[in-house]
Amino acid sequence: MAITSTGYQSPATKREGLIPSVYNKIIMIGADETPMLSLIGTSPVKGIKHSWITDTIGTPKKNAQVEISDFTGDGKSTKVSLSNDTQILTTDISVSKTMQTARTYGGKELEHETTKKAKEHKLDIEYALLGLGRDADVKKSVFKASTARTDMQAGEMAGLFHYVANGATTFSGGKRGNVLAFDSTGDWKGDAAVLNETLLHQILQQIWDSGATPKDIFIGAALKPAINKLATRQFSNETALKAKVVSLDTDFGKVNFRMHRFLSSKFGLADVLIAGDFSYAKNGLFIPTTIEDVPTSKTAKQKRYYTECCLEVRNPNAFAIGVGLKSEQV
């Protein structure tokens, strides 16, 4: 009988000897540094241009029929095709032969660099999932559509904001799809509004009205005090201040508030709150993360992390993003 990836026999008690996924391994290293990547799952991608189909449930309507009624059958397809381009991400490691041998604080230099670069690699993936770094103006960058690769240009994936905007290119009436602007001008350019229970309710209501249930909310340090204020109504103030993840009861069920380092002034997203059911978002892997030796004539050992992936948002209506928000003391 042929040896397979899953089979084993006595005296073995489980399948051994397979190399574990590098992708899964790097996700476990400092998981709280990339909370979105750690929360969403993965899906296989079969090409550098990845497409998927979404569909929506119709709005409830009056439905009362006589005992013998005609068949109307006038419904039309509501399926929509969405796509994203895969992005190649690489992180290089190079350690001289001398440093491979020398004793250093923190252990062996090659192992230290390999672990450190794993963190950097997955931070780059998280950065791309949010659409950061694609324009000098972060408020343009996050909404950008994907860029197809050419021989002279790298392909770039579209981030979460692009899909949550649901095709809208500008804010109108304080909305750009499911991105809600609460600032004074309603276009993410005016003075921020204080995040309170009423505004939070509006963000979650947007998801609920779309037929999904909000389960997780990402915030940054700037908005944490506003959430602390809401949390102290359900928990002690000490508990609210210390928790990295606070679960609160809302009108839409229990939601988990999670801290995200990229939702900060450093990245231009300090006034942002991202809510949704993240089971509808996947990191589409065309080439799962690998670490490979890179041949070199130098007196050094070189390795490279390599991932080719793109964000897949299977139901954009399962998400809502609030922008133009602040805590009271800001």
Rank of each mutant, 00 (worst) to 15 (best):
K117S: 07
I227G: 01
S265V: 06
T72G: 15
N24A: 09
M99Q: 15
S264V: 10
S141T: 08
A212I: 09
Q206S: 14
K14S: 12
K140C: 00
T250E: 05
D70M: 09
K139S: 14
V313Y: 05
V194S: 05
I93R: 08
M99F: 09
V138N: 00
D32W: 11
T147R: 12
T101M: 11
H162N: 15
K49A: 08
S83Y: 14
A281E: 04
L200N: 13
K244D: 13
P316D: 08
T296V: 06
K282N: 11
S94T: 14
I291G: 04
D70E: 14
G174K: 06
K108V: 09
V142W: 03
K108C: 10
T6E: 13
I227H: 06
T78V: 10
T169M: 04
W208C: 07
V245T: 15
T56C: 02
R134C: 00
G75W: 11
S94K: 15
G17F: 02
T104D: 04
Y280S: 09
T78D: 13
L241K: 14
F171T: 03
L130T: 01
P295V: 13
E292L: 08
A226D: 05
N166L: 12
K224S: 06
I125Y: 03
Q9Y: 13
V95D: 02
D251S: 12
I125W: 04
T170I: 07
H162Q: 06
V66Y: 06
A148L: 10
P44D: 06
T307S: 14
C309P: 01
T4C: 03
W208S: 14
V66C: 09
G177K: 03
L269D: 07
K303G: 00
W188D: 09
Q302T: 12
L248D: 07
L123R: 15
T307Q: 04
I57E: 14
A165N: 07
I274Y: 03
T4S: 11
F182A: 03
W52A: 01
K61G: 13
R15S: 10
T289P: 00
K46T: 14
K189C: 08
S297I: 13
S96P: 01
E308V: 00
N317V: 06
M1Y: 08
N24F: 11
E109K: 15
K119A: 11
E120M: 06
E113C: 04
